[in-house]
Design a protein around this nucleic acid. Structure first.
Lengths: 345, 345
DNA sequence: TGTTAGCACTCTAACATCCAGAGTGCTAAT
DNA sequence: ATTAGCACTCTGGATGTTAGAGTGCTAACA
């Protein structure tokens, strides 16, 4: 159900002006703004039809029109001219983030901080989730009289650590035993294969020696479990307080503090490209005036996640889209690089 | 300049009623609320004097009185009846946090989360800062082809890690060299003695071998530097959006996001007991309607920090004070325990 | 059939006005 | 020193008014 070219031009003009100013747009103004010359009455007729079709709405009878969620959707799907991110933005991203060290989470946190700053909105990301992530390294490190740090890294580039408190000092036989168990059961295993049953099995097989290394195994198990589930990163929430979402800010801050609610929204992005969730499409009352735009990133090996922004439905899509495309690209590359360096062979 | 007993009773009643309801308090109401019987006119006279003395103020001519910052200060210093934290709160704190594992930062984060939840305000804390902290453990751990994790723990119970990217694989000779350097120069050294000059000195002494382990040394240096400066933890900021500080929330969130501005405020607490900073005493425009109440905690060995709340000046001091006292206590104990376990001898 | 001018209509936002209620300060009496 | 009484002030809500913006509709036009 494509619109006539003239309707498209009008819709695009309404959207762009509305995004720029936040004010409803009237027919008189459009006369001067549109690239063709018709009277305001004609535009009124067209706008009346666009309203009937659901692309525009009126806050009240005598205000201008604003785009509906459906109108914005049509706009981003079919009308949007995307440009490249500005040189200076790209430079800023690369120069801040390029020589980052650390694991995926750290990289993404930095990118989110930056994205939030550049867009003036909140930025969100998930750490990579991979169905095929495999444990590629387990290490243990005594950190005192009666404690040890257990480290796990996976092929998804995630590094997790836990501190295990022991009943006695971590002496050499204990560590060796743990290494052997880890090498035999964990290293090379897919993360999802690590579950309670497996843990129990190992414990049974170990017999009485299990007692000593139980805390270590539990910590290891914990760390693997944590590395398998995607972390959600949210930055720049305070930007929302200065945006059109001011009024909804408390609810949105609440919402974004609960990964189990935010994650499904981010996972809507399936194909790894750009994904929009506009206004009521978010399916949550708190987000009815918000849009979530995400870009997928891929670090190879089926390892992928998303990074994006959360802001008012009337955000500047034309600017956000190329920026996110670029940020997603950078995220993928950095995480892939990092995984290379921290993965054995 | 002590007030007459009757003035004190009036002041206390005004403060308590104002804290409970947020409404200005009038003379008529006080007649019914005070433990002695005088007419409203008498109370008006007293209140007029309290206003002149600076303890009360009027939002406008025909509203009741509210306590000024000075009035609140007098109240918390001299009039406050403190009680014990409720059994259920103490239980909740102990049960959530007692078997916590992890370093000081993690413990404090949990306590802050809890405090924020219990009080409905924002909670703040600093990780322990100790003038006398000493490095007690350095470890390095290869985490892949060309990277290694460097870990430092200090007598203040702080554990910091950094990932170092290497130019080549971390083989045994390299690690041994690093261990030797660390043992000779870092372990047992006070954190503050680790500075750029020292780093340079070491590099020079190593001659050409320095090249290989430079990234490790830099990471180690970084980690020590980070462990020496107190981290600031802030949790529950979103609670501010539902409080009397709603209007100031953006500015306060901004303020509390900048550790270098928040830290001096927290460091006002010198004696390790309770410390109040009420309204304009905070010295910052953004915090003119806020109070910061902190409790010092001490983990022995001169290792100490603070934990507290940030909320409206009209917070329920009678409840916050015993709670913070208890939380500070728990924080000190847990961090001390933890330091014991993760410290060598 | 599409476009346009004109006009009556509707709605909002801003401003003024009014009024009741709450609380004060002051005075004069006790 | 305390109190009753009263005039006064200020706020917040309700009500009314007006200018401006924008619409929808009708009738005329190409």
């Amino acid at each position: 159900m494509a619109l006539s070219q003239r309707k498209e031009l009008i819709l695009a003009a309404v959207v762009e002006f509305y995004i720029a100013t936040g004010e409803p747009v009237g027919s008189k103004f459009l006369v001067t703004a549109l690239p063709f010359t018709v009277s305001s009455a004609t535009i009124r007729n067209e706008m009346a039809e666009l309203s009937e079709l659901g692309y525009l709405e009126q806050p009240h009878t005598s205000a201008g029109r604003i785009p509906s969620d459906q109108g914005l959707r049509y706009y981003v799907d079919r009308l949007l001219d995307t440009v490249n991110p500005s040189e200076s933005e790209m430079f800023r991203i690369l120069s801040t983030v390029d020589h980052t060290e650390g694991d995926a989470k750290r990289i993404l946190s930095q990118l989110c901080d930056l994205t939030a700053q550049l867009t003036g909105m909140a930025a969100v990301a998930t750490t990579p989730f991979s169905d095929r992530a495999v444990i590629n390294n387990v290490q243990v490190l005594p950190v005192g009289k009666k404690a040890a740090l257990v480290l796990v890294s996976t092929t998804a580039g995630v590094l997790k650590s836990r501190i295990a408190k022991l009943s006695a000092a971590a002496d050499y036989p204990l560590l060796e035993l743990f290494y052997n168990v880890a090498a035999a059961n964990f290293i090379g295993a897919p993360c999802e294969s690590v579950n309670k049953a497996m843990l129990q099995q190992i414990t049974v097989n170990l017999g009485e020696r299990a007692l000593d290394i139980a805390p270590l195994l539990v910590s290891l198990f914990d760390a693997v479990a944590q590395s398998a589930e995607a972390d959600v990163i949210v930055r720049g929430r305070r930007n929302l307080l200065d945006s059109a979402l001011r009024a909804d800010a408390p609810a949105i801050i609440e919402f974004t503090s609960e990964p189990e609610r935010l994650l499904p929204l981010l996972k809507k992005n399936r194909d790894g490209g750009l994904h929009f969730s506009i206004g009521k499409e978010n399916g949550s009352r708190s987000l009815q005036n918000a849009s979530v735009v995400t870009a997928g990133y891929s670090a190879g090996n089926g390892t992928a996640g998303v990074i994006g922004v959360l802001g008012p439905t009337k955000m500047d899509y034309a600017r956000v889209i190329p920026l996110l495309r670029y940020v997603g690209d950078v995220a993928g590359r950095l995480i892939a690089d990092n995984a290379d360096d921290t993965t054995k062979e």
